[in-house]
Nucleic acid binder design. Structure first.
Length: 488
RNA sequence: GGCUCCUUGGUCAAGUGGUUAAGACACCGCCCUUUCACGGCGGCUACAGGGGUUCGAAUCCCCUAGGAGUCACCA
């Protein structure tokens, strides 16, 4: 039975790199009929952000990645929050002390800083803990521990040889032991460090495959020393390349890069984000690029993972989002778009359903919608140069002429029969008798109605949305504008 | 600096000794068209560099360069 885990620390919301790790971890488990587990790594109490744990639950739920075991859903391997497992770690660390794979250390931070400074003066950048406390006799160490003196427990890394492990993606990774430090396993506050808690919990929770960021790659060889000392079997490690904002910087909250939550708030749809994220650092090996979660589960394979970092390219996300939006049912679109329409059109009595039809395939990200429809609320200031369009064969003079024709044609329509079809018939009816091409009528009218070079929908749709009165008002404004210009 | 990892077009990427080196986004043309968008067609741009191995290297080996990670009582 395959068991994977996503193990974030509660320091904030779910960033996109974390989301991708969670996704891959979920996909891998589900692909193989296994379990996906959530574990909260909160051993650094100082960094913990209140409410962050709930944020993680919520994000995972919003992302559609349900976990089979976790703090809020239970499971047979709990507790799933590390601080609640506190008592587990020290006894295990003491076993390592007994076997010589670890030892208690009483050096204070000040002493350490002092020795470090001296060592750095000799050989810059070479400092490692000097195994000072390894020399203590068992009896003395025992005595000092029992006297209540603060201590930590350090891993006793051999002075020679190499430590290594097999990464499912990066292959054989090894490091010379003499470059490895005797890291702290149990901190003075009694809580385990990340590395120790990982080893212990992954084993105790029966985790078979660990997916995590490459930043842990270089500390992983040391894990195997621990597993060997315990006599435990190590899980398979799969380190994941980072998601970058550009060639040399990781996507990060600090730099204002969006979180999953932020993207949703901006009007990206969940499935588009998931689809896009899945393809950042992983490829199905064929040319498919649209995947539902279920299809991702089916297609996921470690062979498709990329070792090189991937740059988060918003343009492609926008494209995916646009595709997802275009493909959703009109009803769904209308429901999602309504609050955005309301931002500028609330109370106008606008036919949202009709507007939705126009906007449906023209929406890239919802937060751009208000700007796209704002001209419906109020006619923007515009330049009469807009009336000139080479391909439509129009210019100011001709525009004035057609607006003067369009005005009575529109006015002839009944207020309650001012439909898109009726407007279209009325305007098209002007073409033949006056020897005008369609564009020569439609272009000037649309400009007068919208004041914009490009709009969702054409002249007739906009006229309908605006209604008779407002349409006439805008046509009149256009006529006045053109006349004034003609006189000047 | 030590150790570790990475390197195909602007971006995501396929490719595991023999291909005209896929595809997508973006960009640029053209077509369609009452604007825009959609759609259709076409175009541009890549194996970091240098040595090997081989009949033959994007694919294997070495070196160089560039980038990243790590070297905490943070994860």
């Amino acid at each position: 039975m395959i068991r994977t885990r996503f193990a974030p620390s509660p320091t904030g919301y779910l960033h996109l790199g974390g989301l991708r790790t969670a996704l891959y971890t979920y996909l891998f488990a589900k692909k193989h009929g296994g379990k996906f587990i959530l574990r909260i790594e909160d051993t650094d109490q100082e960094r913990e952000v209140p409410g962050a744990v709930e944020l993680i639950y919520q994000s995972l739920r919003q992302a559609g990645l349900p976990y089979d075991e976790g703090p809020d859903v239970g499971g047979d391997f709990g507790p799933y929050i590390q601080t609640q497992r506190k008592e587990l770690y020290l006894p295990l660390a003491m076993k390592l002390v007994d076997s010589g794979a670890a030892y208690p250390c009483f050096c204070t931070k000040e002493e350490l800083a002092d020795r470090r400074e001296k060592a750095e003066a000799q050989a810059p950048g070479q400092w490692k803990y000097d195994k000072h406390c390894l020399a203590l006799s068992k009896e003395e160490a025992q005595r000092r521990m029992q006297s209540g003196e603060p201590y930590v427990i350090r891993q006793n890394v051999p002075l020679s040889g190499t430590a290594s492990f097999e990464d499912a993606l990066y292959g054989h990774v090894e490091a010379p032991c003499d470059t490895l430090d005797d890291n702290v396993l149990i901190k003075a506050d009694g809580l385990p460090t990340y590395n120790f808690a990982n080893v212990v919990d992954d084993h105790l929770m029966g985790i078979t495959h660990v997916m995590r960021g490459v930043e842990y790659l270089s500390s992983t060889p040391k894990y195997n020393l621990l597993y060997a000392a315990f006599g435990w079997e190590a899980p398979t490690y799969i380190h994941l390349s980072p998601v970058m904002k550009d060639a040399s910087r990781k996507l990060s909250k600090r730099y204002g890069d969006p979180s999953f939550e932020d993207l949703l708030a901006q009007g990206y749809v969940r499935d588009a984000v998931i689809n896009f994220i899945a393809l950042l650092g992983w490829s199905p090996g064929d040319e498919r690029e649209f995947f539902t979660l279920a299809e991702l589960v089916d297609a996921f394979d470690l062979k498709g993972l990329s070792k090189a970092p991937a740059i988060f390219n918003t343009e492609k996300l926008v494209w995916f989002n646009h595709e997802y939006i275009s493909r959703m049912a009109l009803e769904d679109y209308l429901a999602l778009a309504t609050p955005w329409f309301d931002q500028v059109l609330a109370g106008k009595g606008m036919d949202y359903r009709f507007l939705a039809q126009l906007m449906h395939t023209r929406t890239e990200v919802f937060d751009r919608v208000p700007d796209q429809v704002r001209f419906l609320a109020e006619l923007p200031e515009y330049d009469t140069a807009l009336y000139t369009h080479q391909k439509m064969k129009t210019n100011s003079d001709l525009a004035l002429q057609t607006l003067l024709l369009a005005r009575p044609a529109l006015d002839a329509l009944p207020e309650d029969g001012f439909t898109e079809e009726a407007v279209k018939a009325a305007l098209m009816g002007l073409c033949e008798p006056h020897q005008l091409k369609t564009g020569q009528v439609m272009w000037p009218v649309r400009i007068a109605l919208s004041g914009q070079a490009s709009t969702p929908g054409g002249a007739t749709e906009i006229a309908y949305l605006l209604g008779k009165r407002e349409s006439l008002r805008r046509v009149d404004a256009g006529i006045a504008k053109l006349k004034q210009q003609g006189e000047a």
